[in-house]
Design a binder for these strands. Structure first.
Lengths: 338, 338
DNA sequence: CTGAAAGCGCTTACAG
DNA sequence: CTGAAAGCGCTTACAG
């Protein structure tokens, strides 16, 4: 292009980048020609020189998880708005894959990494090592063992809201279906459950605290069956994921248990099932977009700043969406007039 | 690294790449040192020199669409296995965004592009122009106006299977809920529907061919209401997406129509709803992984080959999963003994 | 206001 | 078997 215009490469470069020191006339001439020959700047060469790729690496455990899509949408759009591209890897919840993928991202020269951890991340050391090479932010599936900024929903508060809502509708014996304590997320939600009970002076009853390795519809159904077999049945069930709540409702309906009057159900995630299953499922709405956006914004800030100090944990607030599985509007007036 | 070892940069490079002309001794020495200092090759510099980025660009219309996750999983894992990274953009079904994103991908120097078109892609010209710059493969949402290799599920055959199944269970008046003819996918499924009717000598009745702009549960419900209001009701409904079938079932249940004996329902996509709604929904299973894999494999082939000729359209076969919304096992024996 | 030159980190033909 | 040098496409201090 330079020689076609009879000027130097430097001038072309400066004209294209609107350098203050170039005459408007030259700029116009260069830009016009660039458009004519459909000149495509080589972002690679640019990045190569500046040691910036403008690529953000994202590693997630499971792309088919519905919530992941919402997170990714937030990440991708926010990154795009800021001139970054996003490279995505799926660790398939494998520890080894996760480490390997992070390594190739570094090799690739990503400017920063967003990581959502596998269910049970053992080799934290390798991840700590990573932070030496590149800005890192954990999101959604985090770990307090890694010193870096972390973005999550406020799980504890969310669970607290859900359980308090049940208490406010008159429930006194609230069961929880959660995962085993290896799941960080599950634990935080469990804490919110405990906090709500404590705050309302409700005794914790171990017999209605159900834990499983891996929740699913079937598992929710199984655990509910156990709860129904108890002498002293619960009057509400809070599940830490919607799928389990769907299972719970299935099992309750099978046993002709009235929902919500006999046993109310609240889930978590406000997934699409909520409005499909009958009765519609009350659930915690998680603003996945906002988590993604926030994580990207903090990451870009870190990329641009020199010092990577004072890491924070940002907790995004959620909101409870009340539906018929936990609250029957017909009886609302009665309740309110009490 | 070179000077620490007292050898030239060239030799280090060759040793690391297992060049045949380097002594085993030197190789070992270099590799040992590389491991010690945790040397990370700069993939960028490599790519810069070889004009290859080993990045594949992917543009999809809607990341929250469930099927997209499956496609992406296939794409990402296959790319990874072949040493490629994947950059993802979401066009949000916007034509302008799509074009812009494709352009920045080119600027970025991706080695190839996988594209799933927006619902109504008008500016095909811009996309055609793209193919001049980089190998392109269309997948899932394709268009015959673009000369390139395309990978889709065999929609026509899938719909044919679904409708033939209904015919085989004794249904004679089969409605379809589809989208307007601007949707390529919808049209292909509609053709399968027509083909099945034709092949079984069933007359096409325009009054039970329902089209809408954008299908959803509500829309499925609305269209079903219309069908139920007909003098001559259909005895089966085939919907080109599951959501619409979910709406149909809701509406049928509301009107106490027996499923499948009075009206059977078959959906498309085998989404997670199928096993949640009662009765469970029969549906076409689309192997998203395989579409993704296949698209990546063809793209890599094109990237590596010099000539980008003989484009093909690859149609991935689907299978129908029969559930209670279209077939009642209790009556199966009767039917078979007829 | 513009140009010549160095340099980003690698690979590879060329020379020895 | 190894080294010196060129070059990938850009940007930017330096010089004029």
């Amino acid at each position: 292009m330079a020689k076609e215009l009879g000027i130097s490469i430097s001038t072309v470069s400066r004209a294209l980048n609107d350098h203050f020191d170039i005459s408007t006339e030259t700029k116009d001439r260069v830009k016009a020609h660039a458009a004519k020959v459909r000149y495509v700047p080589n972002a690679f060469a640019k990045g190569f020189r500046s040691h910036k790729t403008n690529i953000i690496g994202v590693v997630i455990p499971n792309i088919e998880h519905r919530f992941t899509a919402t997170l990714l949408r937030g990440i991708i759009s926010t990154a795009e708005q800021n001139g970054y591209k996003v490279i995505i890897c799926e660790s398939m919840n494998s520890d080894e894959k996760q480490v390997e993928q992070l390594k190739t991202m570094i090799e690739f020269g990503v400017d920063g990494v967003l990581l959502s951890l596998t269910k049970k991340t053992k080799n934290i050391d390798e991840i700590l090592d990573l932070t030496q090479h590149v800005p890192l932010i954990l999101f959604d599936r985090i770990s307090n063992k890694v010193a870096c900024t972390q973005v999550i929903i406020d799980d504890e508060d969310a669970a607290f809201q859900a359980v308090e809502h049940l208490i406010n509708t008159g429930k006194k014996r609230i069961a929880i279906i959660k995962e085993t304590d290896e799941s960080n997320v599950s634990e935080r939600r469990y804490h919110g459950y405990l906090k709500a009970l404590r705050q309302h002076n409700i005794e914790v009853d171990e017999s209605i605290i159900m834990s499983s390795e891996d929740l699913s519809i079937e598992e929710g159904q199984r655990q509910t069956k156990v709860l129904l077999s108890l002498q002293n049945r619960p009057d509400a069930i809070f599940t830490i994921i919607d799928l389990a709540a769907v299972g719970a409702i299935k099992e309750l309906k099978k046993n002709k248990v009235k929902i919500p009057s006999e046993i109310a159900v609240v889930g978590f995630s406000n997934s699409i099932f909520c409005t499909i299953i009958k009765p519609n499922l009350s659930s915690i709405n998680q603003p996945g977009n906002r988590i993604g956006e926030t994580a990207v914004n903090y990451l870009i800030e870190e990329i641009k700043s020199e010092d990577h100090l004072n890491f924070k944990t940002i907790e995004i607030k959620t909101n409870l969406i009340v539906r018929k599985s936990s609250f029957n509007p017909k009886k609302a007036s009665k309740l309110q007039s009490q």
